[in-house]
C-alpha cells in the first residue's frame, strides 16, 4: 500500500489491475478472485461518478468539511469498485446518484486518504 499513499502525496491516483481485468481503487494488494499478489498499477483520472450518497447536515470534528456535505461512494473513471469520500455539494438538492465529481487535492499532503480534501461536483455534467 505504500506506493498508493506515496502516489497520493504526489497528486496521482493509482490503482491495481486484477486477474479479471478489473481496476481496484483504492488498490487491492491481493487479487479478490485468485488471492495472488497484484503488481500491475494503473493511473486513473481525477473524475468519477457517485454510486450512492448520504447527507451530513451537522459535520462532526475531524470530518473532511466543516459545513454540510455529502458522503458518497465514488467510482473513478476506469475503476471497477467505488471508494468512500466527501462531496462538497453545498446543498442536498444539488447531488444525486450518478452525479459527476472531480478530486479536490489537499493543499498540504502527507501520504494518506486525506490528501484528497474532498470531491467537487462537475457543474452541468451530471
Amino acid at each position: 500500500m505504500s506506493r498508493f499513499f506515496l502516489s497520493l502525496q504526489e497528486g496521482r491516483l493509482e490503482g491495481t489491475k486484477g486477474s479479471d481485468g478489473r481496476v481496484y481503487f483504492p488498490p487491492a494488494e491481493f487479487d479478490p478472485v485468485t488471492g495472488e499478489q497484484l503488481h500491475e498499477w494503473v493511473t486513473l483520472p481525477e473524475t468519477g461518478t457517485v454510486v450512492t450518497w448520504s447527507w451530513q447536515s451537522e459535520p462532526q470534528p475531524n470530518q473532511p468539511l466543516e459545513h454540510p456535505f455529502a458522503w458518497a461512494l465514488i467510482t473513478l473513471d476506469g475503476a471497477a469498485v467505488p471508494m468512500l469520500h466527501a462531496v462538497d455539494a453545498g446543498d442536498m438538492a444539488r447531488i444525486r446518484t450518478g452525479s459527476r465529481v472531480k478530486v479536490r487535492w489537499a493543499a498540504e499532503r502527507s501520504g494518506g486518504v486525506r490528501d484528497i480534501a474532498c470531491f467537487d461536483l462537475l457543474e452541468g455534467a451530471s
Binding site: P26, W53, S54, Q63, W71, L84, G112, V113
Partner: peptide, 19 residues
C-alpha cells in the same frame, strides 16, 4: 487507512447502503 481518517460514523455509512 481508507475509512477511519475520514470519520464518517455508522449512521452516515448505513445511509449510503439505504440510498
Amino acid at each position: 487507512y481508507m475509512v477511519t481518517p475520514l470519520w464518517p460514523g455508522f449512521d452516515s455509512l448505513s445511509a449510503l447502503q439505504a440510498r
